[in-house]
């Protein structure tokens, strides 16, 4: 009996132990280690020769233009991606919300890029956006529109990266918004139509508030996800031309071997930004979002 009792008390801890062990070793410890590294001038060849430099790395970050450039690019990228994705996927979702065969088929098609590796997506779009031979400029020219240098000009490179990210992500968000739209009870719309409300008013006063939890969810995961943007940049532009697409994670990546302490400090800054965004969003969530 005593043994039984003991087992009962210990069992839950045994059950969660492996998972907690993984988190401790591969998340919590690395974060502490990252903080530690950020105070050092780290010597990769001979770690014993690493030197404690206090806040020097942090001071260097906030004194360097290239950091601000990457922060600015990341913010522009995030803003562009979030706004475009939300607007376009909301429009498409409203258009495809009725559950018909055709709509389900189109939704599945739009979703395809989301499950394909960013490596493939990037290579395909590099080819599509090739200024001389690519299909995109051919299509623009055929329509009598001006062509673009896309990824190869510092004026349009960041926008091109945004376009690719939006293109890849939309399918997922359309699915979520469609599911949310289908979850709205038809009786609410019937009541509105009895009141002779205009379509726009119905959308603004009923549809939007009813799906705001899902829109909010999308806003959070997209903003945080966009701040981590790296793959498309590494594949398509390597941060160029002329640092026009250098983002925070790419910046960390560039410094990861030559200046580990500095890269670690930048990693801490990234973590702080993600933490603040998450916190702000959850505060807003508690206050504003409509729940049924």
């Amino acid at each position: 009996m005593d043994k039984h009792r003991f087992m009962k008390a210990v069992l839950p801890y045994l059950l969660v132990f492996p998972a907690m062990f993984g988190i401790a070793v591969f998340v919590i410890y690395p974060v502490l280690y990252l903080g530690y590294l950020s105070f050092y001038k780290y010597n990769l060849m001979n770690p014993a020769k690493s030197k404690f430099v206090g806040l020097e790395n942090y001071a260097a970050i906030f004194a360097r233009d290239d950091f601000y450039k990457s922060l600015f690019n990341t913010a522009v990228y995030t803003f562009g991606t979030v706004v475009l994705t939300l607007a376009i996927s909301l429009a498409i979702a409203v258009w495809l919300k009725r559950s018909t065969k055709l709509n389900a088929f189109v939704q599945a098609g739009i979703f395809t890029p989301h499950i394909v590796s960013i490596v493939s997506i990037s290579l395909v779009w590099l080819w599509m956006m090739e200024p001389n031979l690519g299909f995109l400029n051919f299509a623009l020219k055929s329509l009598g529109l001006p062509t673009s240098q896309w990824l190869q000009s510092s004026d349009t490179a960041l926008l091109s990266v945004i376009i690719v990210s939006v293109w890849q992500g939309i399918g997922y968000y359309v699915l979520i918004i469609v599911a949310a739209l289908q979850g709205i009870s038809p009786s609410i719309y019937e009541a509105a139509s009895l009141d002779n409300a205009s379509n726009w008013k119905v959308f603004y006063k009923i549809t939007l508030p009813m799906i705001s939890p899902q829109l909010f969810f999308i806003l959070i995961i997209m903003t945080i996800g966009s701040f981590k943007v790296f793959d498309t940049v590494r594949m398509m532009t390597n941060g160029g031309p002329n640092n026009a697409t250098n983002t925070i994670v790419y910046y960390i990546y560039q410094n990861r071997t030559t200046n580990i302490g500095y890269a670690s400090a930048t990693g801490m800054v990234l973590m702080a930004i993600i933490g603040i965004l998450t916190f702000v969003y959850f505060r807003m969530l508690a206050k504003k979002v409509h729940y049924q």
């Binding site: 907690m20 690395p30 280690y33 981590k228 960390i252 580990i260 890269a263 990234l270």
Partner: peptide, 27 residues
């Protein structure tokens, strides 16, 4: 401690590989 441990799970969900890759590589 279940509440605390579960909040660590959520925390782990929030911290991306882009933050932890340098220390993990060294480890």
């Amino acid at each position: 401690g279940s509440g605390f441990l579960f909040s660590l799970v959520l925390l782990a969900f929030m911290i991306p590989g882009q933050v932890t890759f340098i220390p993990v590589y060294l480890m």
